[in-house]
Design a protein around this nucleic acid. Structure first.
Length: 184
DNA sequence: GGCAAGATCTAA
DNA sequence: TAGATCTTGCCT
């Protein structure tokens, strides 16, 4: 039994949300087809003081969604090639989000999902899904209701070497021994 | 209005 | 290990 996560789930500490998202299900309905993937890897971008976070640049046309209310999607294009999907967390105005890095295919997901770019490609997520409400009926995250325990591994984030000491912080989380992880 | 750089992926 | 490829943000 799938249960859509409430707004209050996202309105918490970003690291807690990043850890709790592991094992949850991302659902995207495209042209009547329901695509579902189990979240197995995330990264936390915890606020304006986090130099690896886009929000550290302040409020701009691109980052304003990160400063909005929690439970919304923040989608952007990286390297002109790939899309990355984030989930806005904390209270409105905080500027934090959780990046979804890898999924485990559950239903109607054909291509690989090990990495932010591939994840969005497989789930058919693009810039048009930016600022989409995750409490809507066509793009949301749900709990299986089974409360299955997972072993969480903490590692430094990927591709943020420019962020100084923040690059070394262990803000990446994934499910131990899961074969769908993007990188060890 | 122009320019540099980026939370990536694939092929060689 | 380099190239694809385009939006954002800052500079002029």
């Amino acid at each position: 039994m799938m249960h859509k996560l409430p707004r209050s789930f996202y309105a918490r500490d970003t690291i807690e949300v990043a850890r709790d998202l592991l094992g949850k299900y991302l659902v995207h309905v495209v042209e009547g087809v329901e695509r579902i993937g189990r979240i197995v890897e995330t990264e936390a971008y915890i606020g304006v003081h986090d130099l690896a976070s886009h929000s550290s640049k302040g409020i701009t046309a691109r980052t304003k969604v990160m400063f909005g209310p929690p439970g919304f999607a923040y989608v952007y294009l990286i390297y002109g090639v790939h899309h990355c999907m984030n989930v806005v967390t904390e209270k409105e105005g905080h500027g934090a989000a959780v990046l979804l890095r890898a999924l485990e295919s559950v239903r109607n997901v054909e291509t690989r999902t090990s990495g932010p770019g591939l994840l969005c490609k497989a789930m058919a997520i693009d810039l048009h899904r930016n600022m989409h409400d995750l409490l809507s009926d066509d793009l949301y995250i749900a709990d299986s209701g089974e409360g299955e325990p997972v072993t969480i591994v903490e590692r430094p984030r990927i591709g943020v070497d420019y962020a100084g000491e923040w690059a070394a912080r262990e803000l990446r989380f994934y499910i131990k021994d899961n074969p769908c992880i993007s990188k060890k």
